[in-house]
Nucleic acid binder design. Structure first.
Lengths: 216, 216
DNA sequence: CACCCTTTGGGGGATTCGCCCCATTTGTAC
DNA sequence: GTACAAATGGGGCGAATCCCCCAAAGGGTG
């Protein structure tokens, strides 16, 4: 099964570099090129590629918008972002737009090949320095030491109550679980909210998830 | 800078295979081996490796627990999971435990080398078929095609209300924002909760964060 | 010993929530 | 043209929430 590629980049030089690189891969074939988001759309419709290599900086729209538009119309086409940007923002936006991979232009050629192969199999290749960001955000990790302290001076008991609150338990349920009076749970809740400057259970839930106290 | 490796696997055969593979890398050096979680801990303390290759199936504890314990004591040591398991559960648990990479044993040797290099640089390598799962879970927001289905049949207006609810807004605040009566907001909230089988704002908040409708 | 912090518990009141009942208008589908 | 979903709005009611007030027992520190 040959992988049919569409190159999207406004620099012809970049495209020819990619063509040279791809030409070494016998299971890949470049079936089209585009220098703008508009062209990318029409070329996708015309040639129906397996995978699109998408630059982010395009003259008309960003590659992010182009990706979103393409995935909306042709969800079976997978997009690999290939860009000079290693910003966290672009990375997340591109994945959110539906990209199946993200490779900086400074990456080794083999990494791009890996990413293309992954995208063709409907998998996702993430460049390691950026994958790290995704994992960090996903698990709200990085705590271990300082974020546990950054629970803004909550006591042990308060943290215990907060956990239950965040999981959606009512005052009575928490009281039963901790074997104390519902009124004491109230008391703890008030103290928690005052210390954290939060004013509703909903805000407590978000706070707890952000801090990694509970999982979403 | 040589990368100092600790191999953790209860099968000596696997360890010698890895030794052979690593011996081809002149910037890597195996400084220790362990056949159990217990040994992994003590060896980590003794040799202070840069990167640990960690199997999940160990005789005493799982590699997940071992990783958690090691990251708690030696956060600067990065762990790459190397396992036969490609289950979603193990994958997420391992990352949550603090692993800097996840490579199935069936992966190509170069992928393991890439993962080790990434881990040594404090980055994260994710095997493409599993990276896909992470991205999917992280951006469960808009799925272009099946998004409407994945939100269990919520209407456009209901999703709009849900977003506000999840952000912690009261009925009156939402009414003001959407320029409708508080009573109508109530109506929408009831329909949302019934459709999703949720029964409190707290549960709505978690649901919305899980689905990527709002960020935590 | 006096002081502070934590944890425990109660009273009361204004407000909000969660869940029923009801209805009208405006589309879209058959 | 009728039927059905979606969006709009209202009334009411019991429960829960949120925010004040109050207090006492126990631990630790200066």
């Amino acid at each position: 099964m040959t992988i049919r590629l569409l190159l999207v980049d406004d620099h012809a030089v970049v495209r020819s570099g990619l063509k040279m690189l791809i030409s070494g891969q016998k299971d890949m074939e470049i079936v089209g090129e585009a220098g703008s988001a508009e062209e990318a759309l029409s070329e996708t419709e015309r040639v129906r590629p397996t995978v699109i290599l998408m630059d982010i900086g395009l003259p008309d729209k960003t590659g992010i918008e182009a990706t979103r538009a393409i995935k909306a119309k042709f969800p079976e086409v997978n997009v690999v972002a290939l860009t000079i940007h290693e910003d966290e923002e672009y990375f997340f936006q591109m994945l959110n737009a539906g990209a199946s991979g993200y490779v900086p232009k400074r990456a080794a050629p083999e990494e791009l090949i890996t990413a293309i192969n992954a995208a063709a199999k409907d998998e996702v290749y993430l460049y390691p320095s950026l994958a790290k960001l995704l994992v960090r955000d996903f698990f709200n990790a990085e705590r271990t030491a300082e974020e546990k302290v950054s629970l803004d001076g909550l006591t042990e008991r308060e943290r215990e109550v907060l956990t239950q609150l965040a999981e959606g338990a009512s005052n009575d349920e928490i009281a039963a679980a901790l074997v104390i009076s519902p009124k004491t749970v109230e008391r703890h809740r008030e103290n928690i909210m005052r210390k954290l400057s939060l004013h509703s259970r909903s805000e407590l839930v978000r706070y707890a998830i952000r801090k990694g106290i509970i999982k979403a």
